[in-house]
Design a protein around this nucleic acid. Structure first.
Length: 267
DNA sequence: ATGCCCGCTTACAGCGGA
């Protein structure tokens, strides 16, 4: 089973590229972020035409996440991230989390979350506080899922550069929210709880990028970093076969600033 | 220190992104 995470940076602007990528790489599940569309603007019929079902959680202009699945419609489990006690967080209006069950390629249940973690810049400040608070809530939700002892993936744009070897230049972005010690520590706490960073486990030396800025020719100069992650529960990690980045899709016309990041799991 | 580029909007300039 192939599961991919892809920050598409606007579904209206990206639709031709997104459909092309789905047809070329045929992921069984695709977790999307930065849909940037209200729910009623989500182009579900375009996905159905090429054999994908979907659920989505949108808002106007910003954020927005979706889960696509080949040959099936995901069964929604959780829309929006609960508070740290597991109760709905009515104060959070940002569409950044969606969780569903899908059938894996052997017909067994598999839990999938799509995550668009807050950027947090500028830091320090209220946006950074929101990021760290959101990461606490994510950790609590992740702990709940792990307690179910099921195969599961938490896939998305985490807006966290985990290590210095996950950025093209270790001196770059020193003041950025994406690589602050607090951001990294919050990410590491989720891993320490038993979640498995797929790309890191296959490429321990780093040097794998999933994002290149549109500005300053960053892609041409390969000035990227790794912020899109697929974290696996123990039962899913046991089935991990391969992982990678569809690097070449970042270089196409009208590409997102992120590249699709994926894993392959055994049945 | 800021902008670079890009997508979004009761748009044609300003905001957010990372």
């Amino acid at each position: 089973m192939r599961i991919a995470s892809y920050n598409i940076n606007g579904i209206k602007a990206r639709l031709p590229r997104l459909l092309e990528w789905l047809e070329e790489t045929q992921p069984d599940v695709a977790c999307l972020q930065e849909v940037k569309s209200q729910d009623e603007g989500f182009p579900i019929s375009e996905f159905e035409k090429i054999g994908y079902g979907a659920i989505w959680h949108g808002q106007k202009s910003f954020n927005g996440v979706a889960i696509l699945a080949k040959g099936q419609t995901p069964t929604e489990i959780q829309r929006g991230l609960p508070d740290i006690y597991g109760n709905p967080d009515e104060s959070d209006e940002q569409a950044r989390y969606l969780e569903a069950d899908v059938n894996d390629t052997a017909g067994n249940n598999f839990r999938v979350s799509t995550i668009y973690l807050p950027n947090g810049n500028p830091q320090p400040g209220p946006k950074f506080d929101y990021k760290l608070a959101w990461m606490k809530r994510l950790r609590a939700r992740a702990a709940h899922i792990k307690s179910l002892e099921i195969p599961a993936v938490l896939a998305g744009d985490y807006n966290v550069i985990p290590h210095d070897h996950d950025i093209y230049n270790k001196a770059a972005m020193l003041d950025d929210a994406l690589r602050q010690p607090e951001s990294r520590a919050a990410y590491q706490r989720i891993l320490a709880d038993g979640w498995h960073d797929s790309i890191e486990s296959h490429y321990p030396a780093g040097g794998i990028w999933t994002y290149w800025d549109y500005r300053s020719g960053a892609y041409q100069r390969d000035h990227g970093f790794r912020i899109d992650h697929l974290l696996l529960s123990p039962l899913a990690a046991d089935r991990l076969e391969k992982s990678g980045v569809d690097h070449e899709h970042r270089g196409r016309e009208k590409a997102s600033d992120h590249a699709p990041t994926w894993i392959m799991l055994r049945d």
